[in-house]
Amino acid sequence: GIPATNLSRVAGLEKQLAIELKVKQGAENMIQTYSNGSTKDRKLLLTAQQMLQDSKTKIDIIRMQLRRALQ
Rank of each mutant, 00 (worst) to 15 (best):
N29Q: 12
L52S: 01
L70M: 07
Q50F: 04
R67F: 14
Q65C: 12
E14W: 15
Q53R: 14
N36H: 12
A48L: 10
I31R: 01
I19E: 15
T5H: 14
Q50D: 03
A18E: 06
A11C: 15
M30F: 05
G37A: 07
T57A: 10
T33I: 14
M64C: 14
G37Q: 07
T39K: 09
E20C: 14
K58F: 02
A4V: 14
Q16L: 12
R67E: 10
S38P: 14
T47E: 12
T5V: 11
Q65F: 04
K24Y: 13
I19K: 11
K56P: 00
K56Y: 04
Q71T: 08
T47G: 08
I62C: 01
L13T: 00
I59T: 01
Q16C: 13
E14D: 02
K58C: 05
A48D: 00
Q25D: 05
L46A: 11
I2S: 11
R63T: 07
P3Q: 08
N6F: 04
K40Y: 13
K56M: 11
K58V: 02
Q49W: 13
G37I: 03
R67C: 14
I19T: 05
E14P: 01
S38Q: 09
M51P: 00
G1N: 09
L7Q: 09
A18W: 07
E28Y: 08
S38W: 04
A27C: 11
L52H: 01
G26R: 12
L21M: 10
Q65T: 03
L7E: 12
V23L: 07
G26H: 15
Q71M: 11
L66D: 00
R9Q: 15
Q53T: 07
N29W: 06
K56G: 02
K24F: 12
L17G: 00
K40M: 08
L13Y: 03
S8L: 09
D41Q: 03
L44P: 02
V10D: 01
S55T: 10
L17F: 02
T47R: 11
R9I: 15
S55C: 13
I59W: 00
A11T: 05
L21C: 13
A18K: 09
R68K: 05
A69V: 10
R42K: 07
K56E: 12
Q16D: 05
S38R: 03
K43W: 08
L44F: 07
L13W: 04
L44W: 04
N36R: 08
E28Q: 07
L17H: 01
I61Y: 09
L45I: 04
L21T: 03
K15F: 09
R42Y: 15
M64P: 14
L21P: 00
G1A: 10
E14A: 14
T47M: 12
I2E: 14
K40T: 06
K24W: 06
L52M: 04
Q53H: 12
T39M: 11
G12Q: 15
L17C: 08
L52N: 01
G12L: 15
L44Y: 06
N29L: 13
I2A: 10
A48P: 00
L44I: 05
